[in-house]
Design a protein around this nucleic acid. Structure first.
Ligand SMILES: [Mn+2]
Ligand SMILES: [Mn+2]
Ligand SMILES: [Mn+2]
Ligand SMILES: [Mn+2]
Lengths: 148, 148
DNA sequence: TACATTTTGTAGCATGTGCTACATTTTGTC
DNA sequence: GACAAAATGTAGCACATGCTACAAAATGTA
C-alpha cells in the first residue's frame, strides 16, 4: 500500500531464506487491503453502477469509518478518486490492479475447487491465499486447471 | 494472537460471503506472527538447543526490539516462557502449535513443489499461504501428494 | 416544505508491528 | 579482575487498521 516503501541502506539482512520469505509476506500484507478494496469497488461499480461507502463497508465486513480512512490512503496512493459525499471511482492504476486481482481470485478459487474443496471453504481460503500467490504459482494453478 | 478476542454483541454482520471471508483472513493474520515465532523457536531449539533473541531476529528478518516486544505478547498469550537475558522456551500450548505449523508448512511447500514450482518460490509463497489453509484444504493438499 | 432516515464525515481510542537510539547486562578475552 | 564485544532491554516514534460516539450532509417521504 505504501508507495515508496523506501529500502533501508543495508537491505540485505535476510541471511536466511525464512527471513526473506517473511519479509515478502509482510510486503504482501501491506498491499492486501488495497487489492481487496479495488476489487470490491470494481465489483460494485459493475453490479450497480457505483460504489458507495456503505456498500463497501457491508461488503468488506468493516465499519464505514474504517472504509473512510482506508479510502483516504487509497487516494493518497493513487488507486481511487473521491469527493465528499460522492461515489468512489478507480483510477487507471486502480482499475488495472482490480482486474488483475479479480482474475487471480477466480483462478485461486477454481483451483481449490478442482482439488475437491467445498465451495464455501474455497472462497474463505482463497480470500487470504490469493495475496501470497506469485506469478509463477498462479501460472502453475492455471496449468493444472487446463490439464487436470 | 489475542486470547479472548471478544465477540461483539451483534457479530453476525457478514451479510456477504466476501465479508465473512475477509473477516476470517483478518483473524488468520492475527495469529500468524504467533505461528511463525513458535515455529522458529522450535526449529532453533532443535538445531542448537535453545532459542535466543538474536537468533530469532536474524531468522525472522526483524530487529531484536521487535522480537522482544512480540515475545512479551506471546508470553502474555501463553505460548512461551522467558526470563530476562535467558533463552526462550515454548509452553505445552506453544509446542503443540509449533508442531502443527511445522507439519503444515512442510505440506504446503511439498504441494507447491509437486505442481512444478521452483524450490525458492515454493518457500516464499508457502510462508504466506500456510496461514490461510483450512484443515479441509490441507487435507486436499495431502491427498494430492499421496495420489499424484 | 418539514421531518425522519440514511449516509458520510470526524474525533479520539486501542492494539499490533515495524523502527532507531540509547541503557544495561552478560559473555568472552587478556 | 578488567575491558571490549555481544546480547538484551527500554523509551519513544511511525503507521496501519480496527472500533465507538457523535456531527453534519444528503436523501426520501408525508
Ligand atoms: Mn483477499
Ligand atoms: Mn479477493
Ligand atoms: Mn508463515
Ligand atoms: Mn496473509
Amino acid at each position: 500500500m505504501k508507495k515508496p516503501a523506501r529500502q533501508s541502506k543495508k537491505s540485505v539482512r535476510p541471511s536466511s531464506l525464512q527471513a526473506e520469505s517473511l519479509q515478502q509476506t509482510r510486503r504482501e500484507h501491506a498491499t492486501e487491503i488495497a487489492e481487496d478494496y479495488v476489487e470490491a469497488i470494481a465489483d460494485l461499480a459493475a453490479a450497480q453502477g457505483e460504489a458507495r461507502v456503505v456498500d463497501l463497508a457491508r461488503r468488506l465486513g468493516v465499519t464505514h469509518v474504517t472504509v473512510n480512512r482506508t479510502l483516504a490512503r487509497l487516494q493518497r496512493d493513487g488507486y481511487v478518486t473521491a469527493q465528499p459525499y460522492r461515489a468512489i471511482f478507480l483510477t487507471g492504476t486502480g482499475r488495472k490492479l482490480a482486474e488483475a486481482c479479480q482474475q487471480r481470485h477466480t483462478t485461486v478459487v477454481s483451483f481449490l475447487r478442482s482439488l475437491g474443496i467445498n465451495e464455501k471453504t474455497a472462497e474463505l481460503d482463497a480470500e487470504g491465499i490469493e495475496h501470497h500467490v506469485s506469478p509463477e504459482t498462479l501460472a502453475a494453478f492455471e496449468r493444472h486447471l487446463r490439464k487436470g
